[in-house]
């Protein structure tokens, strides 16, 4: 298992945000990566990250997606592209 970094899932807690988080967790476990997964639910906090549309995903301070539930394959691609060698 490799140490990855921080992944934040931003959203006020609606079903779409839950589904996004689920996909992130599943992708991490499938790719055997350990990461700190944070949920950001407070609207002010969400906005402070520069995110307008939820659900959003931020990987190590980079906004990789916002405004939709990302496809599972897409989530894996993000991690694969950034995984430590």
């Amino acid at each position: 298992m490799k140490m990855f970094g921080t992944v934040k899932v931003l959203g006020p807690g609606c079903p779409r945000c839950q589904e996004t988080k689920r996909r992130v967790m599943n992708a991490l476990s499938e790719l055997q990566l350990i990461a700190e997964v944070q949920e950001v639910k407070d609207p002010k906090e969400i906005a402070r990250h520069g995110v307008l549309f939820t659900p959003a995903v931020i990987i190590n301070n980079e906004i990789v997606s916002q405004g939709k539930i990302p496809e599972y394959e897409e989530v894996k691609k993000w991690f694969l592209e950034r995984a430590p060698k």
């Binding site: 959203g11 520069g50 995110v51």
Partner: peptide, 17 residues
């Protein structure tokens, strides 16, 4: 047309831009 849960973060987001 967003799910009402997105409305408030969106509002906050606009403030922050």
């Amino acid at each position: 047309t967003v799910c009402s849960c997105t409305m408030v973060p969106l509002f906050a987001g606009i403030l922050y831009t």
